[in-house]
Amino acid sequence: MGRLANMAGRKQFDVDEALRGAMHVFWRWGYSEASIDRLTEGTGLGRSSLYGTFGDKSTLFRKSLERYAETYHPLYDQALSGPHSSPSAVVAAYLRVTLNRIADPTVPDGCLLTVSATQFPALDAEGQAMVRAMIDGLRAMLEQALRAAGADEHEAAELALCTLATNKSLAVLSRAGFSNEDLETVAAAAARVPGDR
């Protein structure tokens, strides 16, 4: 996105950078605790500019969630594109993306999608539908990759759900201060799929 400027000569700002700041506020605090004061501080915008550019808090949240998905979901897609030698390799590749994001010191701990799911009742119907659709999309992506790696339909469905649950638990544990080594242990155990050759 480009830069906006007020004709009266007010300070320019980068809409994309402001949206990234909002995304980090929702990611760190969750929807409920992402106050307008925190959002103005995180974006560097005044209230009028924030509302004028992004609309209300619910709309800004959905735009932030879209930005999050545009940033991270292609990494999962790339990791799952294979070819993978086994279902275990699919699980390991998927969770590696999660571990890499968690280890990134430039972003908040955890996962915006996970913290949003934990605050599901606080979201409006559109926000709830968006969170669920994104989780379902990741699940479908996993199932497809697991089938391509040799899992039958039932096994792929089970493993996709368990991998997704592990992914979400890694995000929660990281927010609780568990070490990267602990998270690596969880991911490695999850990737030991019984019956893999």
Rank of each mutant, 00 (worst) to 15 (best):
V115D: 01
L164G: 00
S179A: 15
R96D: 14
E143G: 12
H73E: 11
L50E: 06
L95R: 02
A160D: 08
R20P: 00
T53Y: 04
L138S: 06
A5D: 04
S48G: 13
T118C: 06
V25R: 01
E66Y: 09
N167I: 00
A122I: 10
A129W: 05
I102W: 01
L123N: 01
E153T: 15
A22R: 02
A171Q: 04
A189Q: 03
F54V: 02
A93I: 11
D124T: 08
L138M: 12
R197C: 13
A92K: 11
S32Q: 08
N167P: 00
L164T: 05
L173K: 04
A157S: 13
S88I: 08
Y76G: 06
H24V: 08
S48L: 15
S35H: 02
D77N: 06
P121I: 02
S32N: 06
N180G: 14
G55W: 13
H154Y: 13
E66T: 15
R67A: 07
N100R: 09
H154S: 04
A171I: 01
M134T: 09
F178E: 08
N180Q: 15
G55T: 14
L45F: 12
G30W: 15
V25F: 03
L60M: 10
R197D: 09
T43I: 12
R67V: 07
D152S: 12
A69I: 07
L183I: 04
D77R: 13
E158A: 09
A151S: 15
S174W: 03
A149E: 10
V90G: 01
G82N: 11
E126S: 14
L39G: 01
S116Q: 05
E41K: 08
A140L: 10
A171G: 02
V91C: 05
D182M: 15
I102A: 06
Y51V: 12
L123C: 01
C162D: 02
A171T: 02
T166G: 03
A79R: 03
P121F: 04
E181R: 14
L45C: 12
A165K: 04
T53E: 12
L19E: 07
V90T: 06
P105W: 03
T185F: 06
K11A: 05
H84Y: 14
E158S: 08
L65W: 05
A93D: 03
V193A: 05
A187H: 00
R20F: 05
L45Q: 08
L95H: 02
A190T: 03
D56V: 04
F178V: 09
P87S: 07
A93T: 10
T59M: 10
G21T: 05
R197Q: 08
R62G: 00
D37M: 11
L142C: 06
S49W: 10
Q119L: 11
R28E: 14
A187T: 05
R10D: 11
E70K: 07
A79M: 06
L113F: 02
S58N: 12
N6K: 14
L159Y: 13
C111H: 07
L113C: 06
R132V: 10
R10P: 01
G150Q: 07
C162A: 15
N167Q: 03
A122H: 14
A8F: 15
A92E: 10
A149S: 11
L60R: 05
S48I: 15
L173A: 07
A22C: 11
L112D: 06
L170F: 01
Q144H: 10
F54R: 07
R147G: 11
E126A: 15
R192L: 03
V91S: 02
R62M: 05
R38G: 00
S174H: 09
T71M: 14
